[in-house]
Design a binder for these strands. Structure first.
Lengths: 336, 336
DNA sequence: GCTTGGTTTTACAACGTTGTTTACTACGTT
DNA sequence: AACGTAGTAAACAACGTTGTAAAACCAAGC
């Protein structure tokens, strides 16, 4: 195994604590001793044992990011932001895939790995308010997404309602009147889908357009295949829509595929807008209009909140951060 | 903080070690004592401190996966496989983004986090053979990709040369004769790009077609934008190609975008094939033909090798695993 | 009653690190 | 000459856990 502080001390002919002092830049170490220790440090290729440090009460410099699905581009791109920005805090990011409620639970509630990490950022998908409130683990936590609970938990989100309203308003501004939505999740209340649906309906109301429930397609999950299936459903309607707001970009890409296969022009026959701003949308044919949340800002805010809580302890009052979003108009709602 | 073993012992009225014995299913504990301890364990919601366990010489149950770029779909999808399969070994995966040589180095060579993890799987991009050989850290390691070094390191890969040959042969079978390649990396020898180029040339040679270096476009990185730029270069040639083999799917998608913008038909004017088999290609317009490595098998093999090395120690001789790949023929080289 | 042998429980040490306390040195001040 | 004081170094304890070894308990056999 690697050299421990003890080996270094022996090698340098000083005490263990002196080595520790050198490592931690303790002020009162003579230049001579410091040099001697440093030489031993280099020669033995010493590397600190994080477990021991953590055990002693210190920190590991590792924070965990738990996302539902790392293979989804939005989360992959978000994770990349976290990894990058975490460096500024001197942190390494442990990325974890929750996949669903069960694992999510395990991480947040049981805190299995909590002794290895300094803090935890969770993007909840299946996590309910109750589960968060029942959380026993004391590891500092920041949630991504709307505030689900009154429990004292920091969270960072974007304004999903406003984003959905902006997307829908954009379709309305194109003159579309029969606007569909893909991605509702009727069985889940209070989640992202519910908020985006609310924004969708708000925009319709403002434009004095009757809400037609048959134009709202649920999606079990948010993958391309779900959007593909949902779009086909919509095209089978007696009166198909002339525009679609998809609750994320993957659904939109699936929808575009279905439209293409069935020979519908985009945006001529049907205009399509997504949500997320993943890079894939910018290279699709046609390129995809979308609402892009400021991912860098999300990561920045979440990490700042986490740092505050790690430093300030559990005492600090819970805080919320909002990241902006922007409307990106591309071919799927623009000029072909 | 959470309850420690000491608190549990106090609460149950037994010694610390007895609690430890119960936790670890030590055989000689009376039923009565066991029940008493278990009750205290439950009541105090005890959870073991992994740091302490690790410090004591045990394992964390955490393995790290280091990929160059988590936001690249291939790596995101690969990482998802690892996360899933690792569960079968009782492991949690710590995903790490290396981004380039510098960080890669830090992880593999310095082993910064090595005290927190049981093993490490690295997908090297910029890592050179020399760096691997100079590695000092003793953490069990499995490399993804071709064998770069004679150092005793396990590795798992696919046959890149054969894959590239298959892709190119497929283009040749369509009757194409002026076949370009996108993604060479002339300044890096022995890497993936070099192997795929070798396979490309081998297929041409078999078909007795002269290798035309002007048709080989380098790519600094493997993103959509690089493929887009490279394809535009190729289209500016006096004699543009009638087919392109892109060294990964993202390059291919960028190339398709460029072809679309310049009004070239695919596969009519130019046939395009990629490499990786990411899901995005199956929803692109046109859908993308590609070589798909068996990602599940890659993960399975790598984890098996890692487990072997963790159990068997450094003594075991290095082993190699090969995962199969398949040729997926879709619209970009098929019937539109 | 006392050894024997097996079962059950405990004390102790150790893993590597750092905060606290203590000890020593050299210097300048009374 | 005795006395701070500041600078430097080291001894010790502690974090939570588990392996080792020793101790305590119990029943059976003489």
């Amino acid at each position: 195994m690697g050299a421990s502080i003890k080996d270094v001390a022996l090698h340098a002919g000083v005490s263990v604590k002196t080595v520790s002092n050198v490592i931690n830049d303790f002020p009162f170490v003579s230049a001579a001793t410091r040099a001697k220790v440093q030489a031993a440090l280099d020669e033995l290729d010493y590397r600190p044992n994080l477990s021991a440090r953590l055990l002693r009460g210190g920190r590991t410099g590792v924070v965990a990011l738990a996302v539902p699905e790392i293979s989804a581009p939005y989360f992959a791109e978000l994770a990349a932001q976290f990894v990058q920005q975490a460096k500024k805090h001197g942190w390494t990011v442990l990325i974890d895939e929750t996949q669903g409620a069960k694992d999510s639970e395990r991480i947040v509630l049981d805190g299995i790995k909590s002794h290895l990490i300094d803090g935890l950022i969770v993007s909840p998908l299946a996590l309910t308010a109750k589960e968060i409130e029942q959380r026993r683990d004391r590891t500092p936590l920041v949630l991504l997404g709307e505030r689900l609970t009154k429990a004292p938990v920091d969270h960072v989100s974007i304004d999903n309602v406003a984003g959905a309203t902006a997307a829908t308003a954009h379709l309305l501004a194109l003159g579309r009147r029969r606007i569909a939505a893909i991605g509702s999740q009727p069985h889940i209340s209070g989640g992202t889908a519910a908020l985006r649906l609310r924004g969708f309906r708000a925009a319709l109301r403002t434009a004095r357009i009757r809400y037609d429930a048959t134009l709202v397609q649920p999606a079990k999950s948010y993958h391309r295949a779900d959007g593909y299936a949902a779009m086909n459903q919509l095209l089978d309607l007696p009166q198909p829509p002339d525009a679609v707001f998809c609750f994320n970009d993957l659904l939109a890409i699936g929808a575009l595929r279905a439209l293409h296969e069935r020979g519908r022009g985009v945006p001529g026959d049907v205009a399509v807008i997504g949500f997320d701003g993943i890079e894939e949308g910018d290279f699709h044919t046609p390129t995809l209009s979308t609402i892009r949340p400021d991912r860098a800002e999300i990561a920045r805010l979440a990490l700042a909140l986490l740092e505050r809580r790690i430093d300030g302890g559990a005492s600090a009052s819970p805080q919320e951060g909002y990241a902006p979003f922007e409307l990106l108009i591309r071919q799927s709602t623009g000029h072909p």
